[in-house]
Design a protein around this nucleic acid. Structure first.
Lengths: 205, 205
DNA sequence: CTTAAAAAATGAATTCATTCAATCTTTTTT
DNA sequence: AAAAAAGATTGAATGAATTCATTTTTTAAG
């Protein structure tokens, strides 16, 4: 059997994470006080810091769980992509974007992205960055698959093209998160337009 | 003559900005205390907050001045661009990147970018975002000029292509700022590779 | 020149994240 | 099963950003 200590640790960790996720959604990141998170998790303030390095860390942990899901959702599209470059990209990117706001507010995304930029060495920032890397890889994989199917011209550097598509969709997501009023549809439309030149030109003749 | 009040205000504003810029460079953003900035500027802590909304605001103000210079430096290239798509892009982007680290450390960039994402509504964040928009416009303008010169194929959406190049170089700069060990040359090489597919394909035959 | 109104400056008080020495709990050893 | 060691928890203390009621300075009016 797992030792008592290990079980208690896992328990507390989950309680803290859950309490934080709920509170962030209820009152936003800034207004959520560590003291309140600790209280809801039935843990002392000091204990909180045994589990997370700082306040930002626990937000990035929350957001990372979400990115894992986005990544999983993306796999279904990469495994069976639409048969045009533009169609495949729109499907994958649409999937990413649609998933993003199910559990997290724009404010939470902004804060998490800001933290992962500002403190790139903290453990959860590293995890977040790693997930980003895998999302980027997923886009490249999509292009590569299309190339194998003959939809993308041979001779194209699929990795380079994938990275460009990814960096663009990622930057545009930051833009989207910054503008509270911008709707998902506008984001998608703008990204589609930006992707069109490259998407069209790499298509096999 | 300008009123005494207006002159004093401008004076103090500059003293605060200068004191902050110096201190940030000396000890980094986190270790720079408002109290110290205020003391060097010969101003009270309270007065600081009459000029800047918060600590982040003054960093973003500092960084914005730098972006203005980057923008100005870029103009010389856009006005007289090299005659290949790849060459022109490399010149412009190289100019941006080279300029970036003259006065500001990676830490300062990271913090400024993080703040402009997290608090997009603060006045200096808006200014920073606006400057980004103009940098993006500059890249689009470059592509457009190349198109008029016949270097880029007609029929290409130069604005879309420009935005894609810009979002890519911007995202890669974030990446660069996150990795203290990454040298400028590596950044440039990676961006060049990423740009190559689109740059090659939009070139006039 | 005096006085009233407006604008700015001041710094002590407040708030909150984070730290750390003391205490308690679980595991290991004998 | 008692004692020692290791691992966790605790909450009061610390330190820094931000606020705000008061005071001071400047401008405008009479």
């Amino acid at each position: 059997m797992t030792g008592l200590r290990a079980r208690q640790k896992a328990d507390r960790n989950r309680r803290i994470l859950d309490a934080a996720a709920v509170l962030f959604r209820e009152v936003g990141y800034d207004s959520a006080r560590i003291e309140d998170i600790a209280e809801r998790a039935e843990v002392s303030v000091g204990a909180f810091y045994n589990y997370y390095e700082n306040k930002g860390d626990i937000l990035v942990a929350t957001v990372s769980m979400e990115v894992e899901e986005v990544l999983a959702a993306g796999r279904t599209i990469v495994d069976n992509p639409p048969s045009s470059v533009e169609g495949a990209l729109e499907a994958l990117i649409g999937q990413y974007y649609d998933h993003s706001l199910v559990y997290l507010s724009k404010e939470m995304w902004r804060t998490a992205m800001a933290i992962s930029i500002q403190q790139p060495e903290s453990p959860f920032s590293k995890r977040y960055t790693e997930l980003d890397r895998r999302l980027c890889g997923q886009v490249s994989t999509l292009i590569q698959k299309l190339q194998l199917k003959g939809v993308v011209a041979p001779g194209i550097d699929s990795e380079a093209a994938g990275e460009m598509f990814f960096n663009n969709l990622n930057m545009m997501f930051i833009e989207f998160a910054k503008h509270e009023a911008m709707p998902l549809d506008e984001l998608k439309a703008r990204v589609s337009r930006q992707n069109r030149p490259l998407a069209t030109l790499i298509a096999a003749p």
